[in-house]
Nucleic acid binder design. Structure first.
Length: 491
RNA sequence: GGGUUGGUAGCUCAGCGGUAGAGCAGCGGCCUUUUAAGCCGUUGGUCCAGGGUUCAAAUCCCUGCCAACCCA
């Protein structure tokens, strides 16, 4: 990456040559009066007539040299615009400078709009300014940048070379913007709570640990937002949400990045059904306003539609019914030993079921491995076993289950939501007996907060990265995170 | 953590025991409406790193590093 080669050497020589001519190819400022793509669109729509003077700026991404004239493509975030430079118009000296610009250089261009004989909207160049000289060559123009490692480590190259990648991240930003607008419209207050926590609560996950020098104590990076947002419910912020980074010190995969973006929202005087309406409305609004459709198509590398997700209908089904669909109608009537045997022998889950697994975990493995991946269309899975969810309230109609749902789309859990536990005594017991192995330290301050009284509330979490994967048709979480975690490389 | 695949020019990739290759990019030339422009010429390499086998290794073997995918 930092080794020099002939191409870089050549560009440095060109830089020196420009300076020798009294040209500083790194400008402080240049103000275009239009975006490149914007100008192109407005010209196509007839809003800017032929001959309109225009000033644009962007990166030079292609050039077609015709001898005494030259076409170059200039690109900014709004799109591409062709510039037509003629020796006659610029004069010999300036035309020579223009001809020796490199792909990747930023230029500002002034001229008039016209249409070439092939119909391409273009700017007839009258003058130009070099805004930033690129000292390294850009990736190849036709194939783009394919090397996944360079794509992730040097995302800027990926963004400049691959239009679809840039589009994905622009859309991700639009998704997040729309989510914020949705919550603000419903009267939610956006807050920021600590990422560095003395006790990392709200989820059973391995935390990252850090040390605060001045305070002389250990902190953990948060694994969830939950416990601080609930403190705010206690404090009287009845509708509250946060979008922020969580950190989990666990494995990396197509669906897991150590830091990921979570949205959590809490609504006082709501419950899990309130949250069901909310998540459905939210996802529909985001899809409609960002993508313009409620039917999401995922495409494979050949551009064929490989999956279609219909956000118009949302199924509601209980956890038990789904497990019975996969594992047999009598699954819950046989003995725990028989369930374990069937899971291992009949359902081939031997590798997924640890010897120490309790009965509910055996069923949990069936759900996670065999049911969840099949839930492509929007599905609210309700009535989960209470052992799985220590922070939720029991279902009045079936106290073995809790008032929660997991919203699954695209074969992944996208949003869990609960009727939140607000009984401090029951909450303490549940945390003390928390299932799932890792006993987390009790957050006494949180329990004290509950003892001051938390209104009944519905709570919701949405994994923003996974939501984006679903909406934007990306198979890997790394393709919706600008700078995914990679091992540092030594040069 | 285990398995599979990959790492060759700036980029995209061939080559898979016998002199290191192509396209694009670059450089020089021709061309004033091209758009993956075209034509002629040309530069460019620690073949990921380190060991080993061999008369000979980018190629076969081992170890390591990095990445992607699958599994845990």
């Amino acid at each position: 990456m930092d080794d020099t080669n002939a191409l870089i050497e050549q560009r440095r020589i060109k830089l020196a040559a420009l300076r020798a001519k009294g040209i500083d190819p790194f400008m402080n400022k240049f103000t275009p009066d239009s975006g490149c793509g914007t100008a192109r669109e407005r010209f196509e729509r007839g809003e800017l007539p032929e001959g309109t003077p225009i000033t644009v700026a962007g990166r030079m991404t292609a050039h077609r040299d015709m001898g005494k004239s030259q076409f170059v493509d200039v690109k900014d975030v709004t799109g591409r615009l062709q510039i037509y430079a003629q020796k006659q118009a610029l004069g010999d000296e300036l035309y020579d400078v223009f001809k020796h610009l490199d792909l990747g250089d930023f230029i500002g261009a002034r001229g008039t709009l016209f249409r070439t004989k092939t119909g391409e909207p273009s700017v007839k160049l009258e003058s130009f300014t070099i805004l930033a000289k690129a000292l390294r060559p850009p990736p190849e123009k036709w194939h783009g940048l394919e090397d996944t490692e360079i794509r992730y480590r040097q995302r800027y190259l990926d963004l400049m070379a691959n239009d679809d990648v840039r589009q994905t991240f622009l859309l991700r930003s639009a998704v997040v913007k729309e989510i914020r607008a949705f919550f603000h419209d419903r009267g939610f207050v956006e807050v920021e709570t600590p990422m560095m926590q003395a006790i990392p609560g709200g989820a059973a996950a391995q935390p990252f640990k850090t040390h605060h020098n001045a305070l002389g104590c250990e902190f953990y990076l948060r694994v969830a937002l939950e416990l601080y947002l609930k403190r705010l419910l206690v404090g009287g912020i009845d509708r509250v949400f946060e979008i922020g980074r969580n950190f989990r010190n666990e494995g990396l995969s197509r669906r897991h990045n150590p830091e990921f973006t979570m949205l959590e929202a809490y609504q006082a005087f709501g419950d899990y059904e309130t949250m069901m309406e909310l998540v459905e409305s939210l996802v529909k609004r985001v899809a409609q306003n960002v993508l313009g459709t409620l039917v999401i198509q995922h495409k494979n590398s050949h551009g064929e539609v490989s999956r279609e997700i219909d956000l118009r209908t949302w199924r509601r089904v209980t956890y038990r019914d789904l497990v019975r669909e996969k594992a047999g109608a009598d699954w819950f009537t046989v003995t725990p030993a028989e369930r374990r045997r069937r899971a291992i022998d009949d359902l081939k889950l031997g590798g997924d079921i640890a010897a120490g697994y309790e009965d509910f975990e055996v069923t949990g493995a069936v759900f996670e491995k065999l049911v969840e991946p099949t839930l492509i269309q929007p599905t609210f899975v309700t009535h989960l076993p209470r052992q799985l969810v220590p922070l939720a309230k029991l279902s009045p109609d079936d106290p073995e289950t809790v008032e929660v749902f997991e919203c699954c789309i695209n074969g992944q859990e996208i949003a869990p939501a609960y009727t939140e536990q607000n009984d401090p005594v029951a909450q303490r017991q549940a945390l003390e007996h928390q299932a799932g192995g890792e006993q987390q330290k009790l957050d006494e301050d949180f329990l004290v907060a509950l003892e001051h009284g938390m209104p009944p509330a519905g709570g919701l979490g949405i994994g923003i990265d996974r939501l984006c994967m679903m909406l934007l048709g990306q198979e890997s979480i790394r393709d919706v995170i600008l700078f995914p975690q990679l091992k540092p490389k030594n040069h």
